[in-house]
Design a protein around this nucleic acid. Structure first.
Lengths: 218, 218
DNA sequence: CATGCGCTTTTGTGATCACAGACCGGTGCC
DNA sequence: GGCACCGGTCTGTGATCACAAAAGCGCATG
């Protein structure tokens, strides 16, 4: 194996295939990939300046998570989801995320709530600026920040997989959505978090998750 | 690449890495792997008479699903789950599977119910024979057969991932469990299915999923 | 002008190899 | 006798290559 230069840099660390994997994964989750967009393993390898092997493994992991879909001939594309599939994924979110929120609630201290409020401010700014990618990223950060307190890594991983699968479609959906009221739902969630109102919290999260679905039929 | 013999056999079809992947996956899901058991990529490759490449990809996909865990140095083992992790996975099942059952219920016709009853008979036999692997396999087949009618592939895939993660631990758990009453829960589920009692069906499934958890603390 | 058809290029797949680091002995030292 | 060190071996990682099949494409034909 040829290692032309040994860079002791402060890069993310980890094997090459993981670096490629993480880069592609966040790209997909943030909606920076157009649904139906075709990708080639060699193209990915060239882009990251690695050989085919790690690129292939990254693609495999992503297809295993449903983030990418692979035709029978092996062509790799970002999946474009049918309406039923999106409804299904939203249902999963609606089932799991309130539970995660409820589990996080007793452990949520003041610093966390303030962080959530800050993130929500960022979300409002992205809405004003019509910044789709920034909105998706901040919105996910809000949810992840809350759910991390739930101490339920498997459940969080599962929800993240759903986010990942919806990623490419979400940005396409954002285009036809002028003013998402996620910030409002988040505010009521934060308020419920403050007073320890678990049913209210679960309802707010469920509403937040379900809300994006309504624009599908519209 | 050397293809020593072109076998036009009726084998499962598909690329080599997928064949290896499926074989390992069902092996793990059926609890035929001891938790903590170490595996090597070269060992897998030798066992299936393939090179390292497809073996590696199969392992990657499985680790991506949480079916295998990989240490920082790259050693591959079947994960041994903490009690909290098992509780968490069971919670996911308890959230998703009743929903799947409810979605399957309006589409469940008589032939399906009879198939479920047949599978349940098999389950009872495996209990009598103390056949752990057979029990797990039949039990999963019962649930999968029902959920396939839900027409919710993403949700089913998610639940299967959970089954996969619990696989190695399940068989170890079965050892200390004399007579699982899954068959009883399944019977009430079937009865609820017959009369179209959705709340009863969801409760029966939830009970069936949660039941296995009680023996953890015992 | 549309539509097959054959060729060229591209692409995924799997095997093989070189290398670095981890693992696991034994062996010598304290 | 216990423990640290050191060697060989094993194992994961990544690059490279050969091959088959699919995809793109131009050309000739109806």
């Amino acid at each position: 194996m040829i290692r032309p230069e040994r860079i002791p840099s402060t890069e993310p660390t980890g094997p090459t295939h993981e670096r490629v994997f993480r880069a592609l994964r966040t790209r997909i989750m943030h909606g920076e990939i157009t649904p139906g967009q075709a990708m080639t393993i060699r193209g990915i390898a060239d882009e990251f300046d690695v050989s085919m092997t790690p690129a292939r493994e990254a693609v495999r992991r992503l297809t295993a998570e449903g983030a990418l879909s692979m035709s029978s001939t092996g062509r790799v594309t970002a999946p474009l989801l049918s309406t039923e599939r999106i409804e299904e994924l939203a249902s999963i979110r609606a089932l799991l995320e309130p539970e995660l929120a409820a589990r996080a609630q007793p452990r949520a201290h003041l610093a966390l709530i303030e962080r959530l409020q800050n993130i929500n401010t960022t979300i409002e700014q992205t809405i004003v600026k019509n910044d789709a990618v920034g909105y998706i990223r901040a919105n996910l950060e809000f949810h992840r920040t809350l759910y991390l307190r739930a101490q339920a890594p498997a459940m969080l991983a599962m929800v993240e997989t759903v986010w990942l699968q919806m990623g490419p479609t979400m940005s396409a959906l954002y285009a036809r959505l002028q003013r998402p009221n996620a910030a409002g739902n988040h505010r009521t969630a934060i308020a419920a978090l403050r007073v320890g109102d678990e049913p209210g919290l679960k309802l707010a999260i469920r509403a937040d998750v379900t809300q994006g679905l309504r624009m599908l039929s519209a």
